[in-house]
């Protein structure tokens, strides 16, 4: 064989080391997978909890007869008479205080003028005539809630339950069993005294177990007033027990954060 060719054949051989790199690569991959499996689940999620479902119920007015339901009239804002803002009038002109009359002697030869009779008033003065009749106070939509007797609780706009007698709505985005919540809230509402002397919000956390018993009642955020906090926790304490969790809800217990809002 020619010398050149043998040199070329010698040179054409691939240097060793690919096998080593293959095992290194395998090792790195296995390590990566092991790391992903080993790190705590909360890290993998990035510490972002599933956004909690927020449901809002508003209760308005006194409890009415159990005749409502299936209508959307409940709790609609109605027109409210708003008093017009007071107009600042200019202060009436006050003449300076009269001077004390000087003593003068009457003129002996003064003529006494005859008294002129005032002309009779035929029409009311211009300012009293009221050319533009007033329509009363301006009417604006307010936030007063009318009690129409309808419950109008719409769970995500899908269903509305009748009865109850308070206008209001309940917004549930993603909970399986809205009926259960309705029952739950009804039970709580029966024991809740919303009539308190001061406004405030108390956040109460509790856990409903599979069989419906309430496990832990905690005051999560105080309203700042013992009376309001007590009223909220008492509502749950007196309820004691809910119906068993629905079968469609697949988890062993349900943790609820309930905000009790007292507005005056």
């Amino acid at each position: 064989m020619e010398a050149t060719t043998s040199v070329l054949l010698e040179r054409g051989r691939e240097p060793a080391g690919l096998n080593r790199m293959f095992s290194a690569s395998l090792l790195v991959h296995v390590g990566l997978v092991a790391t992903i499996v080993a790190i705590p689940k909360s890290w993998r999620d990035g510490g972002v909890a599933v956004p909690p479902t927020v449901m809002t119920i508003s209760l308005g007015g006194a409890p009415g007869p159990q005749t409502g339901g299936m209508n959307q009239l409940g709790g609609r804002p109605i027109q409210e008479a708003v008093p017009l803002p007071a107009v600042r009038r200019p202060e009436p002109f006050r003449p300076p205080a009269a001077k004390a009359p000087q003593m003068t002697l009457p003129e002996p030869k003064a003529k006494v003028l005859p008294k002129q009779a005032k002309p009779p008033i035929k029409a009311a003065p211009q300012e009293a005539r009221g050319t533009t009749p007033t329509k009363g106070a301006e009417v604006r939509p307010g936030d007063t809630v009318a009690d129409t007797g309808g419950r109008g609780i719409g769970f995500g706009g899908l269903s509305s339950a009748g009865g109850g007698g308070t206008g209001g709505y309940l917004e549930v985005s993603n909970f399986c069993c809205p009926d259960y919540l309705t029952t739950m809230l009804q039970l709580i509402r029966q024991n809740w005294d919303p009539r308190q002397p001061t406004p405030g919000q108390a956040l109460v956390k509790f856990t409903i177990q599979r069989d419906g018993t309430i496990k832990v009642v905690e005051l999560e955020r105080t309203s700042g007033y013992v009376a309001l906090d007590m009223a909220a926790t008492r509502a749950l304490g007196q309820t004691r027990r809910f119906p068993a969790l629905p079968a469609a809800f697949d988890q062993p217990e349900l943790t609820v954060h309930l905000r009790f809002e007292y507005s005056r």
């Binding site: 909890a49 909690p52 479902t53 449901m55 809002t56 119920i57 309930l258 905000r259």
Partner: peptide
């Protein structure tokens, strides 16, 4: 006195042992 109560309720996906 007029009383207006608003209940707001947060359902949380139970974490930890419940999951």
């Amino acid at each position: 006195m007029r009383t207006l109560g608003v209940l707001a309720l947060v359902l949380q996906a139970p974490g930890g042992a419940a999951s």
